[in-house]
Design a protein around this nucleic acid. Structure first.
Lengths: 408, 408
DNA sequence: AGAAATAGTTTTGTGAAGTAACATAACGCT
DNA sequence: AGCGTTATGTTACTTCACAAAACTATTTCT
């Protein structure tokens, strides 16, 4: 470490403090929050202002004596990220700025099961480029700091989709397939498992603004069951990013056969397809049908849900025993039926826990969001900037230097 | 962060680089390894030499032209840590220096099941003080930088034993019970679950010297089954330090009843007690009897082991799916029978894994060690010094100032 | 013996944050 | 309105850690 890394470290500390508070802090308040002196904070803030990552608010009437501070905020609509999600029954794109404001979005309801990745990604890439152009037209100017692509898949590194059984994709490298218009954005792309990004969305109110006690197991269900681990507000990806594969945890070694070759996988009981089959329903977009049946008290639906709860209890308790977590957040399909599911889990999960005498388990449903994985992905890319403002500033300087070097 | 934290950060970087290499690096080599300049490394090393954390070796005949470098080593026998472990059938104490050399040890073979924590801890504390005094007599001088106490228990924070079913202890705070002679050492005490510390021992060759690819699930068996997670050479403790409770993961929801109140817990099949019962053996110290029967090809023993392997396959695969780990290290009891166990696990575990097509699972037995948890605990306390040499130096200065202020 | 090569030290320079004083801008009292 | 009080933000100067470069020391090779 040298002095310049000290500087960028403090730049980061200041930025994180401002984002964590959701903005509205003055320089003096930031100094108090970070332990740095007002002079140092002033200098760092002026750099963030120059880079247009932060903007100054109007003076506030505090009612206190003394010179009022100028509140600072994450800069609106100057730097933005694109979140993309592709799932079995829909795709979605969302553009979000550093403040967490959604600048624009598109949803495409369509079946992507057994689809052709080349065509799908080309269309999605074009839609992204169009959406970004629209947003840029409306607002004055906007830098795209990154894009994320959420897929129900095992992803290798941050680029390669190894296996997406429910889409019928394997070994797809999306970056090249999103097309020239997307490439022209010149934004880094993060390819990531959808449950991982949904979990990030569930742990934050806005980019860099982690909710209290953000240590939980996220369980999101769709056709399959995906899970992810949040510890201290951070996603635990595991070595290859495949952590949280709860869907194929064995809940009954003598149970139902699964497409994966094993027996008694959680997915065969608590996946959306499994529950719909057990409830005698036809698969459609969303969970409207199942919720309606449950609300009506349909015995087959209730039985399907009960069986799912049993399986989930075993798998979730295993995860909690292994990970030492005491909070579970349900997302997507499972959030939709949480009204019925959570009471069952609340009574059944502790039966399997070593420490149920010492600590309660908390169950929660994630806030409703049409495209939680796109949201989480956008958070990720925005936080790359907030967590490394120094790198972003240098990158931008290089970019504008390159532009100046190549006159139009 | 300020300049002094920059300094201590670099002190740490240098110390970690030296320890990671196992010593023997010259200042110039350290500079190359850390990216700092030779001048800076020189200054930092002189500080470490002054604090007696590092010592200079004799000149080496490299055969290369140019002035030969002076190799630096972790200082032997100047700073040491005490590792203590208490388990069902034995207790052990080990004193280890910064180089990883065992300066002295004691083993007490005795039954501690349903024991009185007050008496046990008093005796152990006295044994520790005696051992340290012995070592100090032999060597010139020695600072004790910390002590660790490993117990088969759920530990809260780093002090309180909440629940140790197999010892019959609950809500014990060991620090005060280890006695005045122990307190006179004036060393911080870390109380920790035994499997956690065994896993640390399994991930290192010496203090601060992490083995390659130190990402694994450690599974250690004794009366119960304990597990722990090592990721990137670091222990993942979970929020309360209870991570890795594999022993009570449900491997069969309709299985055998367990003392914990649940059914089909792993421990009921793969714990030492369960295996001994199934093999028709009487519990004794160690696993000698079981190993002998297995070697002789006794069918009951083989069947017991096979049933354990089945249960372990389910629990381990759940853990690997959830954590995205692809390596398992077996310790203690399970390491003793790994010759028979590992081939079974190698074929059965992948059946339950989502990514078994994409990645192999590696199984290993931990290196034999009479008291792995004491070793791991000593590593922990020694690494506190290596990872924060600046803090240690300040602490020592304060200590000697206090001594000077209170003349004998 | 002298050149080349490498190790470690010394000196000087740079840059980041701390310190302290000051300018600025509000409130409140007389 | 005028003045003191209080808090914010800025400026000039100091401190300190690391970088750069020159220098000394010690070895091998020719």
């Amino acid at each position: 470490m040298n002095q310049s890394s000290l500087r960028s470290q403090n730049l980061r500390v200041v930025a994180r403090a401002l984002w964590a508070a959701g903005g509205g802090l003055s320089r003096a308040e930031l100094a108090a929050a970070t332990g740095l002196t007002r002079a140092t904070v002033s200098r760092l803030v002026s750099e963030l202002l120059l880079a247009r990552l932060v903007s100054e608010g109007g003076p506030t009437d505090s009612g206190q004596p003394g010179r009022p501070g100028t509140p600072l905020h994450p800069a609106p609509a100057t730097v933005a990220a694109v979140g993309i999600e592709i799932n079995v029954d829909h795709a979605g794109v969302r553009v979000m700025d550093l403040a967490g404001t959604v600048l624009g979005e598109r949803v495409i309801v369509e079946q992507f099961a057994a689809s052709d990745p080349v065509g799908v990604l080309r269309d999605v890439g074009a839609a992204v480029a169009e959406l970004v152009a629209d947003v840029r037209d409306q607002r004055r100017m906007m830098d795209v700091c990154g894009a994320s692509l959420a897929v129900p898949a095992l992803v290798s590194g941050t680029r390669l989709i190894r296996l997406a059984p429910n889409l019928g994709w394997h070994d797809v490298e999306p970056f090249g397939l999103l097309g020239d218009a997307f490439a022209a954005l010149d934004a880094p792309l993060l390819v990531e498992n959808d449950a991982n990004l949904q979990a990030i969305a569930a742990s934050r109110l806005a980019p860099g603004r982690v909710i209290d006690q953000a240590d939980f197991l996220y369980v999101g269900g769709d056709v399959g069951v995906g899970a992810a681990l949040i510890e201290g507000g951070e996603l635990r990806r595991g070595g290859r990013g495949w952590a949280g594969e709860l869907g194929h945890v064995t809940v009954d070694p003598k149970g139902l056969e699964c497409a994966c070759g094993s027996r008694g996988c959680l997915e065969r009981y608590a996946g959306r397809r499994a529950m719909y089959e057990a409830a005698g329903l036809k698969m459609t977009f969303g969970t409207h049908d199942l919720v309606e049946r449950l609300r009506a008290g349909d015995p087959r639906a209730i039985k399907a849900m009960d069986r799912a709860a049993d399986a989930l209890s075993v798998a979730i308790s295993s995860a909690l025993n292994i990970l030492d977590l005491s909070k579970v957040v349900l997302g997507t399909t499972l959030a939709d039926i949480s009204e019925w599911l959570v009471p069952l889990l609340r009574s059944r999960v502790p039966e399997h826990l070593v420490w149920s005498q010492l600590q309660n388990v908390e169950f929660d449903a994630a806030a409703p969001d049409e495209m939680p994985a796109a949201t989480g992905g956008a958070y990720c890319m925005l936080e790359r900037v907030v967590n490394n403002p120094g790198d972003w500033i240098i990158e931008q300087q290089e970019r504008s230097a390159a532009l100046a070097g190549l006159p139009i």
